[in-house]
Amino acid sequence: MTPYRGVLVADLDGTITDPHEPLTAARARLLTALVADGVLIAVVSGSSAADIGARVCARIDRVHRSGFLLYANNGGCCFQVDDDLGQVYAYNHAAEFSRHRAEVHAAVTKCAQDKGLGDVGRVPGKLAPSGRVCVEDRESQTTVTLRGLAHHRPELVGALTRTLGERLLVRAAGRKSIDITLVRSTKAFAAEHLASRGPLPADVVIAGDSFGPGQADLDLLRPALRPATVFCAGDTAPDVPGFTVVRSTSPGRRGDLHVPAITFSTHRGMS
């Protein structure tokens, strides 16, 4: 870790990209400039490895891709990409999670039917028709998307937790989804893995849009990453010892990377 003079730990959707969209040219230029200036970009997202590669790394020139460390499935795997966008894994929980896949599918189907939510589809969540409960299998995670049924999410999370909770982690994600992973496949695991790679530089910045109770970005605020500055949307991030929290709902200023509901700028000489 010592070759880097800064680390930016960032969520994907709603933070460095718009939901389900690739990096814009402007954001790609900013992240590339940070890498060129000695900053490691650690993207920690619930998205699949293939999705992160296509939406982030494909927009970065080959010379600077080595400056990106990518955690998919909310910390279920860690990888970098080669010149041909192939995935080179540091670790991958996919094989372990695959042993639970049938159990997860059965639980989602039963809980959805018990709640009167209808049949469960197997199309990717972002393509799900309205009024459906749809399952998307990712490498080490299953994501359940509720199209037009998001108001039922708390009760479905509760039912799935009662069914799977001792063996698997069930938590709300985004505005209308539920992520099911191994208990240890979390952004906290990703943060600890990042810190274990070597001494962190003095400048660590964490950016996300979902630091509220029970939300995935909150797991990034681990003692192993202290001290750090946290850029978050509104009042979603709590005050945590060792972290300087910057809450923002204002539009981006020139020089900032602006995304919906959050403004984060490079910090303490990282620009």
Score class of each variant (00 low, 15 high):
8 L>I: 08
9 V>H: 07
9 V>N: 05
11 D>P: 01
12 L>E: 07
15 T>Y: 02
18 D>S: 05
18 D>Q: 10
19 P>M: 07
19 P>Y: 09
20 H>I: 04
22 P>I: 00
23 L>V: 04
24 T>D: 00
27 R>C: 04
28 A>M: 06
29 R>I: 01
30 L>F: 10
30 L>H: 11
31 L>A: 10
32 T>Q: 05
33 A>S: 13
34 L>D: 05
38 G>E: 02
38 G>V: 01
40 L>S: 00
41 I>C: 02
44 V>H: 14
44 V>S: 09
44 V>E: 07
45 S>W: 05
51 D>E: 10
55 R>S: 11
57 C>Y: 01
59 R>Q: 14
60 I>D: 03
60 I>E: 04
63 V>P: 00
63 V>S: 00
68 F>W: 00
69 L>K: 03
70 L>A: 04
71 Y>C: 03
71 Y>D: 03
72 A>F: 06
72 A>C: 15
74 N>E: 14
79 F>D: 02
81 V>E: 06
82 D>A: 13
82 D>H: 13
83 D>K: 01
84 D>L: 09
84 D>G: 09
87 Q>V: 12
88 V>L: 15
89 Y>I: 02
90 A>D: 15
90 A>S: 15
91 Y>R: 08
93 H>C: 10
94 A>E: 03
94 A>R: 02
94 A>G: 07
95 A>E: 14
97 F>L: 05
97 F>E: 10
98 S>C: 12
101 R>D: 04
102 A>W: 09
102 A>T: 11
104 V>H: 12
104 V>P: 14
104 V>K: 08
104 V>C: 10
105 H>D: 15
106 A>W: 10
108 V>I: 15
109 T>I: 09
110 K>L: 11
112 A>E: 02
116 G>A: 06
118 G>M: 14
119 D>L: 07
120 V>H: 08
121 G>V: 07
121 G>I: 05
122 R>T: 12
122 R>A: 14
122 R>I: 12
123 V>D: 08
125 G>H: 12
126 K>V: 13
127 L>G: 04
128 A>Y: 06
128 A>N: 03
129 P>F: 03
130 S>F: 09
132 R>Q: 07
134 C>W: 06
134 C>R: 08
135 V>N: 01
137 D>E: 15
